[in-house]
Deep mutational scan, measured.
Amino acid sequence: KTVEVNGVKYDFDNPEQAREMAERIAKSLGLQVRLEGDTFKIE
């Protein structure tokens, strides 16, 4: 899975870890996480 923030992509081998990281980043920035294919987009 991939986490994308402001056009910057971070790859994770563990999908659960990617989801947790995406949620943590989104919460700290006051944004939403949206799953698009294999990418968690933070917008």
Results as ranks from 00 to 15, higher is better:
residue 35 L to N: 04
residue 8 V to S: 06
residue 28 S to M: 14
residue 10 Y to I: 11
residue 34 R to Y: 11
residue 38 D to W: 01
residue 29 L to W: 03
residue 43 E to S: 10
residue 13 D to N: 09
residue 16 E to D: 11
residue 19 R to Q: 07
residue 18 A to Q: 01
residue 40 F to R: 05
residue 19 R to F: 08
residue 29 L to S: 05
residue 33 V to A: 05
residue 26 A to S: 06
residue 39 T to C: 15
residue 5 V to N: 02
residue 7 G to P: 01
residue 27 K to P: 00
residue 24 R to V: 08
residue 38 D to E: 08
residue 14 N to P: 06
residue 26 A to D: 00
residue 14 N to C: 15
residue 13 D to L: 10
residue 40 F to W: 14
residue 24 R to T: 08
residue 32 Q to V: 14
residue 8 V to W: 09
residue 2 T to F: 14
residue 18 A to N: 01
residue 27 K to V: 07
residue 18 A to E: 00
residue 17 Q to H: 10
residue 10 Y to P: 02
residue 23 E to N: 11
residue 5 V to M: 09
residue 21 M to G: 01
residue 27 K to A: 12
residue 2 T to I: 13
residue 6 N to K: 05
residue 35 L to S: 05
residue 9 K to A: 08
residue 6 N to W: 13
residue 7 G to R: 03
residue 33 V to P: 02
residue 38 D to S: 05
residue 19 R to L: 10
residue 2 T to W: 13
residue 4 E to P: 03
residue 34 R to Q: 08
residue 21 M to L: 10
residue 23 E to F: 12
residue 25 I to P: 00
residue 34 R to S: 08
residue 37 G to L: 03
residue 3 V to N: 00
residue 29 L to H: 09
residue 14 N to E: 08
residue 17 Q to I: 12
residue 19 R to T: 01
residue 40 F to V: 08
residue 34 R to L: 08
residue 39 T to K: 06
residue 16 E to N: 10
residue 41 K to R: 09
residue 10 Y to D: 00
residue 15 P to F: 14
residue 36 E to W: 06
residue 9 K to P: 04
residue 27 K to C: 15
residue 38 D to F: 04
residue 25 I to M: 09
residue 43 E to H: 06
residue 13 D to G: 09
residue 33 V to L: 08
residue 3 V to K: 01
residue 1 K to Y: 15
residue 14 N to Y: 09
residue 25 I to R: 00
residue 16 E to S: 10
residue 24 R to P: 00
residue 23 E to Y: 13
residue 18 A to H: 01
residue 43 E to M: 11
residue 24 R to W: 11
residue 36 E to G: 05
residue 10 Y to Q: 03
residue 6 N to D: 09
residue 38 D to M: 03
residue 40 F to D: 04
residue 2 T to L: 07
residue 15 P to A: 13
residue 37 G to T: 00
residue 32 Q to M: 13
residue 42 I to P: 05
residue 2 T to G: 05
residue 35 L to F: 08
residue 8 V to Q: 11
residue 12 F to G: 01
residue 15 P to S: 11
residue 31 L to M: 13
residue 2 T to Q: 10
residue 20 E to P: 00
residue 3 V to Q: 01
residue 15 P to C: 15
residue 22 A to H: 00
residue 1 K to R: 13
residue 20 E to K: 13
residue 12 F to W: 04
residue 16 E to F: 11
residue 30 G to S: 02
residue 37 G to F: 04
residue 12 F to E: 02
residue 26 A to T: 01
residue 24 R to H: 08
residue 9 K to T: 09
residue 18 A to P: 00
residue 17 Q to E: 13
residue 18 A to Y: 02
residue 3 V to A: 01
residue 8 V to D: 05
residue 21 M to V: 13
residue 3 V to F: 03
residue 16 E to C: 15
residue 30 G to R: 03
residue 8 V to L: 10
residue 11 D to P: 11
residue 43 E to Q: 09
residue 41 K to I: 15
residue 21 M to K: 03
residue 4 E to G: 01
residue 7 G to F: 05
residue 19 R to D: 00
residue 33 V to R: 00
residue 35 L to I: 13
residue 11 D to Y: 15
residue 3 V to E: 00
residue 13 D to Y: 06
residue 22 A to M: 03
residue 10 Y to G: 01
residue 40 F to M: 08
residue 6 N to H: 12
residue 38 D to C: 14
residue 8 V to N: 07
residue 6 N to R: 07
residue 12 F to I: 04
residue 17 Q to V: 10
residue 16 E to Y: 09
residue 34 R to C: 15
residue 28 S to A: 14
residue 39 T to N: 09
residue 16 E to M: 11
residue 37 G to P: 00
residue 23 E to I: 12
residue 33 V to E: 01
residue 3 V to W: 02
residue 15 P to H: 13
residue 21 M to Y: 14
residue 9 K to E: 05
residue 5 V to H: 11
residue 6 N to L: 14
residue 26 A to E: 00
residue 17 Q to T: 09
residue 15 P to V: 11
residue 41 K to P: 05
residue 43 E to D: 11
residue 4 E to K: 05
residue 9 K to D: 04
residue 35 L to W: 09
residue 10 Y to L: 10
residue 43 E to N: 07
residue 9 K to F: 10
residue 38 D to I: 03
residue 36 E to D: 13
residue 25 I to Y: 05
residue 9 K to M: 08
residue 34 R to W: 08
residue 14 N to D: 13
residue 7 G to L: 02
residue 39 T to E: 07
residue 37 G to Y: 03
residue 4 E to L: 13
residue 42 I to R: 00
residue 42 I to G: 02
residue 40 F to T: 06
residue 21 M to S: 04
residue 15 P to R: 08
residue 20 E to V: 12
residue 35 L to P: 01
residue 32 Q to L: 11
residue 12 F to Q: 02
residue 12 F to K: 00
residue 10 Y to K: 04
residue 25 I to H: 02
residue 6 N to P: 01
residue 34 R to I: 12
residue 10 Y to M: 10
residue 30 G to A: 02
residue 30 G to H: 06
residue 3 V to M: 02
residue 14 N to Q: 08
residue 41 K to S: 04
residue 25 I to N: 00
residue 42 I to A: 02
residue 30 G to E: 04
residue 23 E to P: 00
residue 9 K to W: 06
residue 20 E to R: 14
residue 11 D to I: 15
residue 31 L to G: 12
residue 23 E to C: 15
residue 3 V to S: 01
residue 12 F to D: 00
residue 15 P to M: 12
residue 3 V to H: 02
residue 9 K to R: 14
residue 32 Q to Y: 08
residue 25 I to G: 00
residue 26 A to L: 06
residue 43 E to Y: 13
residue 14 N to W: 09
residue 19 R to S: 04
residue 33 V to Q: 00
residue 26 A to Q: 02
residue 42 I to Q: 02
residue 25 I to Q: 01
residue 7 G to T: 02
residue 15 P to T: 12
residue 17 Q to P: 02
residue 41 K to C: 15
residue 19 R to N: 03
residue 33 V to S: 03
residue 20 E to Y: 07
residue 13 D to E: 12
residue 42 I to V: 14
residue 7 G to A: 02
residue 5 V to Y: 14
residue 34 R to T: 12
residue 14 N to I: 07
residue 5 V to F: 14
residue 18 A to F: 06
residue 32 Q to H: 12
residue 17 Q to K: 12
residue 6 N to M: 14
residue 27 K to Q: 11
residue 28 S to Q: 13
residue 25 I to V: 09
residue 22 A to G: 02
residue 4 E to M: 13
residue 34 R to H: 10
residue 8 V to Y: 10
residue 34 R to G: 04
residue 36 E to R: 03
residue 4 E to C: 15
residue 41 K to E: 05
residue 29 L to G: 01
residue 7 G to I: 03
residue 31 L to P: 01
residue 4 E to A: 06
residue 39 T to I: 14
residue 35 L to Y: 11
residue 16 E to V: 12
residue 11 D to F: 15
residue 19 R to W: 11
residue 42 I to N: 03
residue 26 A to H: 01
residue 15 P to D: 08
residue 38 D to P: 08
